[in-house]
Amino acid sequence: MADKFEPNIVGFLCNWCSYAAADLAGSNKLEVPATLTTIRVMCSSRVDPVMLLSAYLRGADGVLVAGCHPGDCHYQTGNYLARRRFALMHKILETFGLDSNRFRLSWISASEGKRFSEVTNEFAEHITKLGPNPLRKMPFIE
């Protein structure tokens, strides 16, 4: 088992929807990748793209941002702004030929414990296929 690659995923979860969904997944004993590190933020729009960059440069294999479904933001419009920022970041990564595949934005509501389990497992599978983030062990960067 020691050789099997288990991707390190950093998940930025919004307090009102996705973090509650993570909680629900737990209480329902649904499986979530063991290597998912969650960071609770008050809103998906609290996530500055440089936070994702920091996770990526320090070697996270995958970075997930999850928030309320469009139209359901606790702060009315935060997730729409988060979506624009995420799209912008994606474009930048693509323009540079960087690995935009390792980043994902998902909408998971507070009642979707099952969906939380599905999204995180599917993302972990996707990252497993991509393999480890080569930046993690690269000398002289950051």
């Binding site: 469009p70 139209g71 419009t77 997730n79 729409y80 702004l81 979506r83 624009r84 995420f86 799209a87 994606h90 994902r104 934005l105 998902s106 909408w107 999204v119």
Partner: peptide, 12 residues
């Protein structure tokens, strides 16, 4: 700013 109906391919 934002538009409600846009970038649907970004959030899944």
């Amino acid at each position: 700013t934002f538009e409600m109906e846009e970038l649907e391919e970004i959030g899944a």
